[in-house]
């Protein structure tokens, strides 16, 4: 049984790699456009950093967090978001897949629907943003002044894992809603782009209500605020470092909603 499951997982992974390779072959048809978009993504993301920089240049600290501390928080979030976007981009544009009837085709193929949707759109130009995130991450970690120990390193890795899963989950949530309505999906951007924008700063600065929302509804604080306290040595509760795993758990309800949505699917037009 496990051997069979293993075989299937390997085959799914191979198929995903095949999708990546096809996307690579596709973008190579338009070399100039590819590189310009990569550079564009890099610069746009750099802009976000400048926003943080100039704010602190003027105010010094926000709600007791110093520039270095916020920089660490920002760089972690950016890396998580970029990874999530690279992986789950197909969900982000899922509404157009439904509109154009592309999802019909997905359902006529003997493979996992999630895998096929993921493979349908892999934005390789996001490499620009990922690269920028990598630079920020190195800069953020080196400037943070954190005294590193084994537990804190593990915490950072869990944050990256949980955060990436959380963003993938939000994209999946967005896609699941497309099964019920194709109108007014813009509000979902509050969760995706909004999380990216507001996630630059530790969630606590937005007040108690926001903190509750980000702990219990969309568990953003679990991958960001609480483990950050561990890294910065602001809490004795080292187990906060395990909270990012909540990001992985978040995938479960999102996946269930997706499954429900597929059953509810009404294909478009003729």
């Amino acid at each position: 049984m496990t051997a069979k499951n293993n075989d299937r997982n390997i085959s799914e992974l191979r198929l995903y790699v095949h999708y990546v390779s096809l996307h690579l072959r596709s973008v190579m048809q338009y070399k100039a456009s590819f590189w310009m978009t990569v550079v564009g993504q890099f610069l746009v993301t750099f802009n976000m950093f400048l926003g943080v920089y100039f704010l602190f240049d003027r105010f010094g600290s926000v709600e007791g967090f110093t520039y270095q501390e916020v920089l660490l928080c920002f760089s972690l979030m950016l890396t998580e978001y970029s990874l999530g976007e690279c992986i789950a981009r197909g969900f982000d544009s899922f509404d157009s897949m439904v509109r154009q009837g592309e999802f019909d085709r997905v359902l006529t193929r003997p493979r996992s629907d999630i895998l096929q949707v993921l493979g349908s759109k892999i934005e390789l130009t996001r490499v620009g943003r990922l690269l920028q995130a990598g630079v920020m991450f190195v800069y953020g970690v080196t400037r943070s002044g954190v005294t590193w120990n084994a537990w804190r390193v593990i915490t950072v890795l869990l944050m990256l894992l949980g955060g990436t899963a959380l963003f993938c989950g939000i994209f999946l949530l967005f896609a699941s809603i497309c099964f019920y309505t194709l109108e007014g999906l813009e509000f979902m951007n509050i969760l995706t782009d909004g999380a990216r924008e507001y996630g630059k700063y530790p969630v606590s600065i937005y007040g108690r209500r926001m903190m509750q929302f980000c702990t219990f509804v969309i568990p953003y604080a679990l991958v960001q605020y609480y483990p950050l306290l561990v890294l910065l040595g602001r809490t004795d509760r080292n187990w906060y470092g395990l909270l990012p795993l909540g990001g992985l758990l978040f995938l479960l309800p999102c996946g269930a909603l997706w499954k429900l949505g597929v059953r509810h699917y009404q294909s478009a037009g003729s």
């Binding site: 096809l22 072959r25 596709s26 048809q29 338009y30 154009q100 009837g101 592309e102 019909d104 085709r105 359902l107 006529t108 193929r109 003997p110 003729s270």
Partner: peptide
């Protein structure tokens, strides 16, 4: 679906750029 083939005349299943 492993045992069936489907052709939609109005939609393509081929990758556009390769």
């Amino acid at each position: 679906v492993a045992q069936i083939g489907v052709v939609f005349g109005q939609r393509s299943q081929l990758w556009w750029d390769v």
